[in-house]
Structure formats: structure tokens, C-alpha cells
């Protein structure tokens, strides 16, 4: 009897561990978008290409752009030049991102946060975008300099979101690719 219980417990633990690992796997095709219009999203596009991901980048993705995609990667970070280039206000951008996230959640498309801009994309006007995306993400991939005050670590802990911290932007490429393997 004891042996049987031990076997059940072991199988259950292995199953849960496996489920947890599976929970961190995401499917392609991938839609990459920005939250705040920083050009960091262009770097993520390049990194995704180098990893051979089936990814499409739409800077100002709207809910209807989600059709056919299985994962949404959002790169948060405010850029006044980026918003100027897009010809929109910060409030317009915030509303766009909110609607995109809501649609992704409704469609059960998991969101991956990639914050690669370090402290240049923290505080000030960036954090409203960082907070919004982080709160709704299923995985966070962050360059450490952007988490010096534990901003992302705290959100990850409070919401039980897996978080990977790396030293450099270039080091995000491999964990990004691994999410889809």
C-alpha cells in the first residue's frame, strides 16, 4: 500500500513538474508589438529573426492583428520620438495597448514581456507601460539593468509569473528561442 501511495505521489510530482515546464512553452506564429513605441521592439525583431522564429512585427498592433497568432510578445518602453513618429499621444498608445492585451486575454493568446531597454526604459513615462504588460504576461524576459530596483521581480513574485533575467540584450536571444522549442 505504502509503495503504491509513494508511486502515485512521485507520478503526481513528475506530472506537475512537467506541466509547469510545459506552461513556459509557447507556440508560433508570434506577433511582436511595442508598448510605448520605443525602438527596442526593432532589436527584439532582429533577435527573433536570428532565432529563426516565425514572427511578425507590428509596431502598433490592434486586436484584429492577433488573428492567426499563438503568442504575443510585447516590448514595453516609452519613447517620445517613437510616439512622434507614430503621430500619437501617450494616452492613445496606452489605450491601444490595453485593448490589445484585453483581446489577447479573451482569445487566450499568452503574452510574453521582453524588457531590454535597461534603465533608459524605466520610471518616468515608461513604467505605466511596463506595469500594464507585466501584470498581464505569462512570461517575462528582462535585461537586469531594467530590474535594478526589483520592479519586475516583485511583479513576477506577486503574480507567480516566470521571470528570466539576463545581463545583456544579446543574451535574451537564446531564452527567447527556447520559449518556443
Amino acid at each position: 500500500m505504502k509503495t503504491r501511495i509513494a508511486t502515485y505521489v512521485t507520478i503526481t510530482i513528475l506530472f506537475l513538474a512537467g506541466t509547469s515546464l510545459l506552461a513556459q512553452k509557447f507556440e508560433q506564429p508570434v506577433l511582436i508589438s511595442s508598448a510605448g513605441q520605443s525602438a527596442d521592439v526593432k532589436l527584439v525583431k532582429m533577435l527573433a529573426q536570428r532565432q529563426g522564429l516565425n514572427a511578425t512585427t507590428v509596431l502598433m498592433a490592434k486586436p484584429e492583428d492577433l488573428t492567426g497568432f499563438k503568442t504575443l510578445v510585447i516590448v514595453p518602453g516609452f519613447s517620445s520620438k517613437g510616439l512622434g513618429a507614430a503621430g500619437i499621444s501617450q494616452q492613445d498608445e496606452l489605450e491601444r495597448v490595453q485593448s490589445l492585451i484585453k483581446a489577447a486575454n479573451d482569445l487566450k493568446i499568452p503574452i510574453v514581456l521582453m524588457h531590454i531597454g535597461g534603465n533608459a526604459r524605466r520610471q518616468g513615462q515608461s513604467d505605466s507601460f511596463n506595469q500594464l504588460v507585466a501584470d498581464n504576461s505569462k512570461f517575462m524576459l528582462v535585461v537586469k539593468q531594467g530590474d535594478e530596483d526589483g520592479f519586475f521581480t516583485k511583479i513576477a513574485g506577486a503574480r507567480n509569473i516566470p521571470l528570466t533575467l539576463v545581463e545583456k540584450i544579446a543574451e535574451t536571444a537564446e531564452p527567447l528561442g527556447n520559449l518556443f522549442k
Partner: peptide, 10 residues
């Protein structure tokens, strides 16, 4: 560390 910024078209 350098941040990329796109030149605004307008």
C-alpha cells in the same frame, strides 16, 4: 548601452 530611437517622419 545605447538606446535606439527612430527618426520621427513628421
Amino acid at each position: 548601452q545605447f538606446s535606439p530611437e527612430t527618426s520621427p517622419k513628421n
